[in-house]
């Protein structure tokens, strides 16, 4: 049995049919790249897997979790940054480190891995959108979690930052992690990825 299985999933929000008849499986050590046009339901599907939305039909099974609501094995990084503009990069990451109940040493590791050293004491409001994106993604390294759910993480990243981030994701997957990524650039992700086209 696969680690995450989605069977015959569909989602209706308001009166709108967002996506339907989606089936997928993801195992430990795999990347699932969700592709599709704008508005085809990629974000809604990711939110369904993360447990924020209930599917209108179908079922998601995560093999080690009985209760989707109480999962603490998922990192979800959406299109919003979850960062406070008035706080510095370090203050924001320290906050999330406490929320994730993780080791404070991981903050320095995350800052270094995402090349945020020089701006670690700058307020988020003074950073570019690419730097904010890197800071938001740095939360992934604060606490170890098996499943990374990422909504268009490549947006606003320059080539260097993007390559660095792809290495981080590849490393996570090599260590038996799972990455589920909504992306408009499926070609940038490692060759052994699974593609899921919706819409």
């Amino acid at each position: 049995m696969s680690f995450i299985t989605g069977k015959n999933l569909s989602c209706i929000r308001g009166m709108k049919y967002v996506y339907g008849k989606v089936d997928f499986t993801v195992d430990a050590g795999e990347i699932l790249v969700v592709v599709g046009k704008n508005g085809c339901g990629k974000t809604s599907l990711l939110k369904t897997i993360a447990g924020f939305l209930k599917p209108s039909s179908g079922q998601i099974t995560i093999s080690c979790a009985d209760d989707l609501q109480s999962l603490d094995i998922i990192h979800y990084i959406g299109t919003s940054s979850s960062l406070k503009k008035q706080l510095t990069v370090r203050e924001n990451l320290t906050f999330w480190s406490k929320m994730l109940d993780s080791d404070a040493d991981n903050i320095d590791k995350a800052i270094k891995s995402f090349g945020l050293d020089e701006m670690s004491n700058s307020q988020i409001s003074y950073l570019s959108s690419g730097q904010i994106k890197r800071c938001s993604l740095a939360r992934l390294l604060l606490a170890e979690r098996k499943i990374w759910i990422l909504d268009e993480p490549e947006t606003a990243l320059d080539n260097d930052s993007l390559n660095r981030f792809i290495d981080i994701v590849t490393n996570h997957v090599k260590n038996n992690g799972i990455a589920i990524i909504a992306s408009h650039r499926p070609d940038i992700w490692p060759d052994n990825k699974k593609l899921l086209e919706i819409g």
Partner: peptide
């Protein structure tokens, strides 16, 4: 409102708190 608009609550819900 700011925690909803910047997505903080989505991440907080997945925290062990």
């Amino acid at each position: 409102s700011s925690d909803i608009s910047d997505g903080s609550f989505e991440s907080i819900i997945l925290c062990p708190v």
